[in-house]
């Protein structure tokens, strides 16, 4: 995993602190080209990994990337699935079975296609696998070495105690896509325990980590303890605490924690991308020097 990963919230009008800003950004990124241009700006700063939801518009971005293979030779995408609002809105309209009918390919009840059989025989793992395949279609021929499960699903399964499904996701990603499974969570300590119990060693986890303790459920102390005492490959997200922490302070804090492998951030302007990337490089140097002095 690269040290710096580029996120996609800004492209789809997600803003945790203001609906007005969210709309302004949605307008800024109305065209796919404006998204790709921003990704290119990040690449100029040696940020070559794009972590994105399986939003419908990512399909278009993938088309652009596939069409210019030499330009994007070193480019990597970490898909994060599912794009939950699509399903949440669908469940409100169609119900759970209706949503499966809508989104599981080949799922005509009574047909002998895999999807139909899976629903009739209540083969829940097969339904999950079909839904993963449907979400992964858009990434064909794109380098996707890690495939993440979104926090809304990871944490739902965690609360329900459905650890077997987390394990099934982990195993299917490895078997079918020759990739590693990642888990996004808002409940890091609880998730690490659950994955340990399922013998998923050294898991890839992406979690809110920030100086303000924002969305660090169970408390910041518990997070530090979990990070210190467990082997995992950890990606810090929401490092600015949803905008509550000034950039420099936020990054100083994140870089000071030795066991964080990667930092995920999203930004919509060249200035912000450069500023964030430069701060990370600067504080990494400072903490590396301190580390060298101690050991």
């Amino acid at each position: 995993m690269d040290r710096i990963l580029f996120g996609d919230n800004q492209f789809f009008g997600v803003n945790h602190i203001s609906e007005t800003k969210a709309r302004a950004i949605a307008i800024q990124f109305k065209n796919d080209k404006s998204i790709v241009d921003t990704i290119d700006i990040a690449r100029e700063m040696d940020i070559n990994t794009f972590m994105c939801t399986t939003h419908d518009r990512i399909k278009n971005i993938c088309d652009i990337i596939r069409a210019d293979q030499s330009k994007y030779e070193d480019f990597t995408i970490y898909p994060c699935m599912p794009y939950a609002h699509k399903y949440a809105n669908a469940i409100t309209e169609y119900g759970i079975i209706g949503t499966i009918k809508e989104y599981v390919p080949g799922n005509l009840l009574g047909s002998f296609l895999k999807g139909g059989m899976a629903v009739v025989s209540k083969d829940y793992i097969a339904i999950m696998e079909l839904m993963i395949d449907a979400e992964m279609k858009m990434f064909k021929n794109i380098h996707t070495p890690i495939i993440f499960l979104q926090n809304v699903v990871t944490d739902l399964l965690l609360g329900l105690g459905m650890k077997d499904i987390l394990k099934a996701y982990h195993d299917y990603i490895k078997q079918k896509y020759d990739a590693e499974a990642g888990f996004i969570t808002m409940n890091l300590p609880a998730l690490v325990n659950a994955l340990n119990e399922m013998d998923i060693y050294n898991p890839i986890i992406c979690s809110s980590i920030n100086k303000a303790g924002f969305r660090m459920s169970g408390g910041i102390q518990q997070y530090h303890k979990t990070i210190r005492n467990n082997k995992m490959r950890l990606i810090a997200m929401q490092i600015f605490g949803g905008g509550a922490i000034p950039a420099k302070e936020a990054i100083d804090y994140i870089c000071s924690i030795p066991n964080i492998n990667s930092i995920l951030f999203g930004a919509s302007s060249k200035q912000h991308i450069n500023e964030t990337a430069n701060y990370i490089k600067e504080y990494d140097r400072i903490y590396q020097n301190e580390y060298d002095l101690v050991y």
């Binding site: 945790h16 602190i17 944490d155 739902l156 609360g159 808002m186 459920s217 169970g218 605490g241 509550a244």
Partner: peptide, 15 residues
């Protein structure tokens, strides 16, 4: 003021 400073933390976060 934003939700990030106004929301109280919870022990388990789902939606």
């Amino acid at each position: 003021k934003n939700i990030t400073t106004l929301s109280k933390p919870v022990d388990f976060f789902l939606r």
